[in-house]
Amino acid sequence: MLSQVLVNGVVIGCIYALIAVGFTMIYNATETVHFAVGESVMIGAYFLLTFWIVWDLPYLVALALTLLSAGAFGYAVYDRMVSRPLMSAGLLPRVVGLMGMAAIMKGLTRIIWGADAYHLPSALSTDPVRIGPIFIVPQEILIVVVTVAIIGLLFLFFQHTKLGTAMRATSQSRRAATLMGVNISVVFAATWVIGTILSAIGGVLLGPLLLVDPDMGELGIKSFTAAVLGGFGSLPGAIVGGILLGVSENLVAGYLRADWQNAATFVLMITVLAIRPTGLFGKPDKARV
């Protein structure tokens, strides 16, 4: 029982980790707490639903289109319509602006796709495979593989590409990065694009596990919780935080009550912030913002 719960927790935790990594990248580079991150997850799921099921495109084509659209959305909507006009306005107006954008997206989703919940089928078989005492479905193995691969790619991107280095430099000091010749606007745009794609991947992976509906964005709070658990602004923290959250949820669902699962998120978030606001990996100075 325990090992099964842990495996399920790690699987869903991987998805939370991916979303939280995008969220943290955006926070680090643009100092924006992305209050519409849940809606990015939602549009990822709806895009795939449209391209794959409604338009009946082959899965990989639909997936590629989904990620492209999510990236374009990140640039056109978050970067150009919210982040840039509010860049000099401070953090709180940006949060308010993003909440407004989230409401717009939710309403549009209801109008375009209807208020009903959809079920997004899995890309791979859902017949469980037995490994020792644990049952795991191929879809879940895919989730873990995809997460590890993406995090590895991101690591290489940050360490070895010019844009990745510029993104790291910008999050450490905007002024110094500018003086080195980094175009901050490009870095911000790239961050929104990558962050939104990561959220959309989260939606693509979560879609088959949950229902896809216009209120799906409420799970954005899970990525906030993951970020808080790991220490706001820490990328490794976001990964560990996401997995910890997934495991805690599954422990609650497995040993207490299934419908208390979401309460785990809220309780963890409030407890961590009340007791240790810097999380596991956070720096004390950053947490005092």
Binding site: R168, Q172, A176, M180, G181
Partner: peptide, 17 residues
């Protein structure tokens, strides 16, 4: 105004951005 979390080498190389 260095890049505080980067190594000395990385900081120098950022100058050649």
């Amino acid at each position: 105004d260095l890049f505080p979390d980067m190594s000395v080498r990385e900081n120098i190389m950022m100058g050649a951005y």
